[in-house]
Design a protein around this nucleic acid. Structure first.
Lengths: 192, 192
DNA sequence: CCCCAACATTGCACTGCCTGCAAGTTGCGT
DNA sequence: ACGCAACTTGCAGGCAGTGCAATGTTGGGG
């Protein structure tokens, strides 16, 4: 029951790896999907069975949080912020787990603003879900909805800035620490 | 000295208008650049003289702040946050000025997450500049840099959430009011 | 061990975005 | 009226991404 799945993971990793290598060695604009596929030992058509766009292969799988974890969040605001801190620092720590070469992702994105932009776009898609989950724990008035939106946006910002700080610091220690600090600095905004 | 410039603005508006119309009436995926151009009375090639991508024509020109305005910002943190509030509420108010049909932009983006993502990407590109400008007013240590990143990220979030609230409220009154409220709610995080 | 049904990979043809270039057109200053 | 610079346009072509149908592969039940 596992053989297929293992093979798919392996191919996916190979494609990610290939896209990072090529992107770093010759610049993102010069990367052809065909070459990426070739280096990973599959056809170009197969690349698009794994990733919807060329960019997607070069993005971090952050904010992959199942619905039930969002549903498990609890209010009110200060406690909620604490829960979000734990949830997303854990999400960031998980990144290194699947052998994703995070520093290389960060470096490629740093060199290529377009990729950074795309990554943010993907994050934003998650923000809709997050915002709804948070809003369900706050009063259903204008102020509550505004706070929910700000809280979810602040989560994305905290993770992103935390990762940047970790990168700027030469990837010392676990990234979770920097992310946690970022959440901590924003906490006063959600203290009540 | 003005004829050319006026004509360019007019063409640009026509293209924006056409892209909004077509996007709303038949769905973003079904919009062809060729048709947009035709409806605006120019060639498809000319479309790309005005916008780098099809999406760009459907995005709001937010965060267009010249370097000298960024350079004019003053610290320390609480005063800085106040200055940013003024700067970006003004930027949002300016939106309606050039006849940009903001509600239709918002509606098109609401219906099309991909566009929303792209818009966020563009915002993020500005964040680099903003972050540098802010960092110059804060201590140049790890904490200062972290705060600078969070502050600039928070600005983007505040503007975005403010605009969403304004949209959710049926575009009552000036959008600046909602954006200002959003900045206000985040202020406690930057009180020192 | 074998077969088969589900799944994965691939080639192919096609659409549409986007770009560089070179030729044409238009408006502006002198 | 002239010449220059800015703008527009058509054309050719590269490349991303998609639907489809054919082919290969795998794991499980008999």
């Amino acid at each position: 029951m596992h053989g297929r799945e293992r093979r798919k993971r392996s191919t996916r990793r190979a494609l990610r790896s290939a896209v990072l290598e090529l992107g770093l060695e010759r610049g993102w604009a010069e990367v052809r999907v065909e070459e990426v596929a070739e280096r990973a030992g599959v056809s170009a058509r197969t690349f698009f069975n794994y990733f919807e766009t060329k960019e997607d292969a070069a993005l971090l799988d952050l904010f992959v949080v199942p619905d039930d974890e969002l549903a498990a969040l609890e209010g009110p605001a200060p406690r909620l912020w604490h829960a979000l801190t734990e949830l997303f620092t854990a999400d960031v720590e998980r990144l290194g787990g699947d052998g994703a070469d995070v520093p290389r992702f960060m470096e490629l994105q740093r060199r290529n603003p377009g990729l950074q932009a795309r990554q943010m776009g993907v994050f934003t898609l998650f923000e809709g879900r997050l915002s709804s989950a948070i809003a369900a724990r706050l009063p259903d008035d204008r102020d509550g909805r505004l706070r929910a939106g700000l809280m979810s946006g602040a989560c994305i910002t905290a993770v992103r800035v935390g990762l940047q700080a970790w990168t700027a610091g030469g990837w010392q220690g676990p990234p979770g620490a920097d992310v946690r600090d970022a959440f901590g600095l924003l906490a006063p905004a959600f203290a009540r």
